[in-house]
Simulated scan of single mutants.
Amino acid sequence: MSTILIVEDDEVMLKSLQDAFEHNGFDVLTAMDGESGLQIAEINSPDSIILDVMLPRTDGFNVCRTLRKRGVTIPIIMLTARAEEIDKVVGLEIGADDYVTKPFSTRELLARVKAHLRRTTEKVLSFEHYEFGNVTLDLTTFKAFKNKKQIDLTSTEYSLMKVLIKHRNEVVPREKILNEVWGYDSYPSSRSVDNHVLNLRQKLEDNPDKPEYILTVHGLGYKFVG
């Protein structure tokens, strides 16, 4: 049974989400402000987090950023009442795995959470380790090393690398990445893929501005040549 932490300051919505996830077999932890959410996440180590952006005490962006800095790689799905593209970009850049704009379908949110959790446990590849350049990836324990120093990747970044490695030396369209990584083809924008690729380059490439391994094929998608 998976444990999910829901951090939401709207009491009615929080109770509704708690009931829905418990009905679907989840153990549910709840918090109504950012600082409490951080404390609960640190103490209880949930399998996934649903995180509202607009929270008292500290907002969802800061919570997500802090968790990633602490090495937490579990799926984080952010909720917001604001539909601006910049909010989505910021959320993804600081390490969120998904972004849902209110109002949303609880059924769709459940499906997204389950898809993210499924990806963190599936062994997409038949091998455990992959090396390229000065990078080593352990694709079963979710550990990554560059120049023998451990670096932090999110669960979505690991899943994206699995897809790129599985199709290495092939052009992988953004739509295919969306479907294989997120588990559905209705994600708001292919910009999400671009932001996650940018994050991977910052972490894995020696020169992110002139990548050697994760290449852009303009108008088509991406190709991994490691």
Score class of each variant (00 low, 15 high):
Val163Cys: 07
Leu110Ser: 02
Leu178Ala: 12
Thr120Trp: 06
Ala144Met: 02
Asn62Met: 13
Trp182Val: 03
Lys114Thr: 12
His116Asn: 10
Arg119Ala: 09
Met161Leu: 13
Glu128Asp: 13
Glu122Asn: 10
Arg168Pro: 01
Glu157Thr: 03
Asp194Glu: 14
His116Val: 01
Glu108His: 12
Lys203Met: 05
Glu131Pro: 05
Ile177Tyr: 08
Leu117Asn: 01
Lys143Asn: 09
Tyr158Ala: 10
Lys162His: 02
Thr136Tyr: 06
Glu157Trp: 02
Lys146Ala: 02
Thr136Arg: 15
Gly91Met: 02
Val90Ala: 10
Ile94Arg: 09
Gly133Thr: 07
Lys69Thr: 04
Leu125His: 01
Leu164Glu: 04
Thr136Asp: 12
Asn62Trp: 10
Met161Tyr: 07
Ile76Asp: 08
Thr136Met: 13
Leu198Thr: 14
Glu93Phe: 04
Glu170Tyr: 07
Asp194Ala: 14
Val171Ala: 13
Leu164Ala: 07
His116Phe: 04
Lys143Leu: 09
Asp98Gly: 11
Ile77Met: 04
Thr120Ala: 07
Thr66Asn: 10
Arg118His: 11
Val89Glu: 08
Leu198Ile: 12
Asn147Lys: 14
Glu93Ala: 12
Met78Glu: 00
Arg70His: 11
Lys114Leu: 13
Tyr184Lys: 15
Gly71Leu: 00
Lys102Tyr: 01
Lys102Phe: 02
Arg82Leu: 06
Glu84Thr: 14
Asn179Pro: 00
Asn147Cys: 08
Tyr99Cys: 08
Leu92Gly: 08
Val163Ser: 03
Pro173Tyr: 09
Leu117Tyr: 06
Lys176Leu: 12
